[in-house]
Design a protein around this nucleic acid. Structure first.
Ligand SMILES: [Mn+2]
Ligand SMILES: [Mn+2]
Ligand SMILES: [Zn+2]
Ligand SMILES: [Zn+2]
Lengths: 146, 146
DNA sequence: TAAGTAGTTGAGATTCATTCTCATTAAAGT
DNA sequence: ACTTTAATGAGAATGAATCTCAACTACTTA
């Protein structure tokens, strides 16, 4: 969290943006949490800490965290954008269960190598991977068998 | 288009849904078009043919086309869901340019094999792949170099 | 550390894709 | 044709995300 804070501060400075209290609260809350999250989750987590930040400010700050490279928008569930940490986290892909909504993470393994190759063929410069699949998790497969 | 129509009709029948004129117009328009599309595109294409179908009906019908396996929701651009044909089309992945919005398609190659392996490790049963990356297309890389 | 400057905040209004409601219409079977 | 049941169009409603603006605060400079 120390390092994230430095990066964030430097990022803000480089953009002539101010390191304000709400921005700090949001950033801290984001990194205290270790799950995928959406703006609403974040709002609730902040309230639970008896801090107060408006939804508007969260909506304004999350894109800054994304631009700084600390988090990324990784999924979309129930019509809401879902974010997750990127700083200090390996790339991974998501298996999302259509039935129960569970999100299973799995390492990239060699997938990235292949994708890089395909991208090179198209002269495309990849900034961010977006890999996953939907289907049925282990538990929900059983349920369907009944 | 003949085959799509059969499948669609059978699908509807299997669900005790009616094969109505609006549903036919929508399906035909979807398969006359060969680009990624959203509900608004579709609405305009239908109007251009001097047919008339309400947006509400399009919003109701697109999920039927998805459920029938003829199309899938494959991307989200400018806050809108983007669809594409699946019937008669190979799986492929999308490289989306952050700068100009261009969408480049590329064959799966062996990516699916690797992903299947990862899924098997998690006992996850894949119904649909969702693979891609964002970054800069060839042209936009040049622009940035200036 | 006071004053100046420029970016930031909260509250609520606004936008816009998508979904819903409901009275009317149309498909399919008999 | 008659009956049943689902579908349609129009417009209202929903809800995530964005915007507006007056009040506020972080940083700079003297
Ligand atoms: Mn994740
Ligand atoms: Mn495609
Ligand atoms: Zn599940
Ligand atoms: Zn481009």
């Amino acid at each position: 969290m120390k390092k994230e804070r430095e990066l964030y501060r430097d990022f803000l400075k480089s953009k002539n943006l101010k390191f304000t209290k709400p921005r700090l609260i949001i950033m801290e809350t984001v990194f205290e949490n270790h799950e995928h999250f959406n703006v609403d989750n974040l709002y609730e987590l902040i309230k639970k800490k008896h801090k107060n930040v408006s939804r508007a400010t969260i909506y304004r700050t999350v894109p800054l965290l994304v631009e700084s490279g600390l988090i990324k928008q990784s999924l979309r569930c129930e019509s809401k954008d879902i974010y997750e940490h990127t700083y200090g986290h390996e790339n991974h892909l998501h298996f999302v269960c259509d039935n129960c909504g569970k999100i299973i993470e799995s390492g990239f393994s060699d997938v990235a190598i292949l994708i890089d190759l395909l991208a090179k063929n198209e002269n495309f410069e990849i900034k961010e991977y977006n890999l996953g699949a939907s289907g049925l998790c282990k538990d929900c497969q059983k349920k369907k068998d009944n």
